[in-house]
Simulated scan of single mutants.
Amino acid sequence: MKLVLTEEQRELRATVRSFLAAASPLPAVRQAAESETGYDPEVYRRLTGELGLAGLIVPQEFGGAGAGYAELAVVLEETGAALLPGPFLATTLAAILLTEVGEKELLPGIAAGTTIATVVLDGDRAPNGVEADVIVVPRDTGVQISLSASRTPLATLDLTRRQALVEPGGWRFVDSSETAVARARDLFAVAVAAEQLGVMRASLDAIVAYSKIRVAFGRFIGSYQGVKHKLADMHCKLEQAESIVRYAAWAADEAPGELPVAAALAQAYVGRACFEVTRDHLLLHGGIGFTWEHDAHLYYRRAKADEVLLGPPRIHRTRLADLLEL
């Protein structure tokens, strides 16, 4: 097992980070989130077209890059750190599910960046459901797919990722196996955990930088012991989360037998840790952190929304305990 990024993965990280810093800085994120579409279609087009990231894990026979989940985790960490608005994660989850169940018609469009897709994750709710061209619903032995299901926009906590209520209509069923669908659900957990890792990292970087310039009672706040201890705790959570995400991505690529435990562990730990880091990031900013104009609440909102995107942490903790008992 190798949990350190390879040179190629570091180059991929640098490329995505540089692109997002230029094309989607936080002021642009706010502007896009408040727009009619909720995201910048041009940024999404370049992300999926120029960089080809929508097809990263799509097999090459369908026009994708055929890369591994270690590479996908690197990309999602960066989109999470940038709080990228729009349907990139939703389309990625759909690509994972369609790839695992062997659906071939939609993958070329997803890989090319011309098809936006989403997955119904919580009953009848789907992230970026209004924007999606395709709605995919995982079932025990396959998936339901619709291009015409009606969608109703929902008010959401995360301002940078909209959701919609999906109503049945125009479904077709693709048969698969329980094993394929179960693996896809585990891969969802890995993907979301990678995004959460990025949110954690960006939150910690922001508050560390702030603690070096904010002065209170004649001293930089970073010099106070209470602040130092809190930052150290946040750093430890980030380090543990990174190890868990790297392990889960490695298991997805190299050790499918370990994936269920790794995926359950990722969501049981990383989701809660991400929320706690963003919460403390907001609190350590003091009064300004609670204002609408500050970015701290955007990280906080993304962290809480991601924490329950695949179900509350207690579900994953219960599953992890059951798997370890076996």
Rank of each mutant, 00 (worst) to 15 (best):
M234H: 04
R301W: 12
A189P: 08
A132I: 05
L231K: 05
E8W: 09
V74D: 00
E167S: 10
P87L: 13
A251R: 06
G170S: 09
L284H: 08
P260V: 11
G109R: 15
R317H: 14
F62T: 03
R151M: 08
L93Y: 10
Q144S: 15
A90I: 12
K212V: 09
Y44R: 09
I57T: 02
V143W: 06
G123L: 04
P127Q: 13
V43W: 13
A305R: 13
L26A: 14
E77W: 09
Q31Y: 15
R279G: 03
G38K: 07
G49R: 11
Q31T: 12
A182M: 04
S203V: 08
E195Q: 07
P312A: 08
L97W: 04
A189I: 14
T91Q: 08
V308I: 11
A252S: 03
R10V: 02
A184Y: 05
L157A: 10
A321K: 10
F62H: 02
E293I: 13
R183Q: 04
Q9N: 01
L310W: 09
T91L: 11
T99I: 05
E167V: 14
I213E: 15
L5G: 00
T156H: 04
E50W: 10
A321E: 12
V101A: 01
A111R: 09
E258K: 11
Y247R: 15
L197S: 01
I213Q: 14
G102N: 07
V270D: 00
E195N: 09
